[in-house]
């Protein structure tokens, strides 16, 4: 099989990965559905029991107060719990499998084109999704990470799906400006930071939902099913603390060095440069917000989400809307 064919086939492998991500997401959703059913019936049982106690305490009625739910719920719970566990396990296995298939697709693309697979938007998207996927897999071993995984899988499914359809660029050689080892490190760091920021943004969004649910004293529903908002806040911060120096080093500093080599100036207010700086400023604001009294928790998370919006714009917006020096997207 020649290399071009390997690169062509990688697209089908990536599409398979998309389908496995979808399967993993469905498994997680089914698990989530079961868990909320268990929670509801648990509460219903608790209410029934307290009603029963009131009834007994009052002793005015002789008929025992016991609805059908009150009797059935414990049996169903005993059955539902393991089923939910099984589904969750299946979901994680599928998630792992999807990540593996995606990794194979990315590697095939790299081998087939004979370069690092992040030279256009399609390649950047699938590699960035792979980074995010691996980070989520590592996180999924923790309690907090398990909850996050559901949303992660959906996000990755959408990203890779978009990449394989709208952003797809057939394999081909690089234009002269991209033929440099700087592509490996500069864009490599951008992919890495992009993946980490994505994970962090998901966690920040969940943090806001969790804090709101806690503030309103909700015990059921989506927000209540989430881990403690302080734990989510810390996780989001740690991920950003890893991604931010990478963003400083790769896109900004190495970008400046490459720009000096390739274009003869290290900073020239190209739209991509401007937006990389805006992203940097937004996340700098997030880090400062977390160090400021009165800005912790969901306020800081909102700043983090604004930061992520600028990441998305630096990537999609600048490539699609502006015609600058970084017009390598292949669209």
């Amino acid at each position: 099989m020649d290399l071009d064919a390997v690169a062509e086939w990688s697209r089908y492998v990536v599409v398979v990965a998309v389908l496995v991500y979808l399967a993993a997401w469905l498994a997680f959703c089914a698990e989530g559905g079961l868990r909320s059913r268990i929670r509801r019936s648990g509460e219903a049982a608790a209410t029934d029991r307290s009603a029963e106690l009131v009834g007994v305490g009052g002793s005015s009625t002789t008929a025992p107060v016991s609805g059908p739910g009150g009797v059935d719920a414990p049996d169903t719970d005993a059955e539902l719990g393991p089923r939910a566990d099984r589904l969750g396990r299946d979901g994680r296995v599928l998630f792992g499998l999807a990540t593996l298939v995606l990794a194979v697709g990315v590697v095939m693309r790299g081998v087939g084109t004979g370069r690092t697979p992040w030279a256009n938007m399609y390649e950047f998207s699938i590699t960035g999704a792979l980074v995010a996927s691996i980070v989520f897999l590592v996180l999924a071993r923790t309690v907090v990470g398990k909850v996050v995984a559901v949303w992660a899988v959906l996000l990755i499914f959408v990203t890779v799906g978009l990449a394989a359809t709208f952003l797809y660029v057939p394999p081909g050689p690089l234009q002269p400006a991209l033929q440099s080892y700087w592509l490996v490190i500069h864009v490599g760091c951008a992919v890495l930071a992009f993946g980490l920021f994505t994970v962090s943004a998901v966690v920040s969004a969940l943090q806001i939902a969790s804090e709101r649910a806690a503030d309103r004293g909700r015990t059921t529903g989506f927000g209540a099913s989430l881990p403690d908002s302080a734990a989510l806040d810390r996780l989001a911060y740690r991920l950003t603390a890893i991604a931010f120096p990478i963003w400083t080093f790769g896109p900004l500093i190495l970008g400046a060095i490459w720009a000096e080599v390739s274009w003869g100036r290290y900073w020239g207010w190209d739209p991509k440069e401007v937006w990389a700086l805006i992203t940097w400023l937004a996340y700098a604001a997030y880090l400062h917000a977390r160090a400021t009294a009165g800005w912790k928790g969901s306020k800081a998370s909102v700043v983090a989400l604004v930061g992520y919006a600028t990441v998305l714009f630096s990537y999609f917006g600048v490539n699609i809307l502006f015609n600058g020096l970084h017009s390598y997207g292949g669209l």
Binding site: I278, L281, A284, H288, T292
Partner: peptide
């Protein structure tokens, strides 16, 4: 400082 960072962005 936070406000100025945002303003600059």
């Amino acid at each position: 400082a936070l406000i100025l960072l945002f303003l600059l962005a």
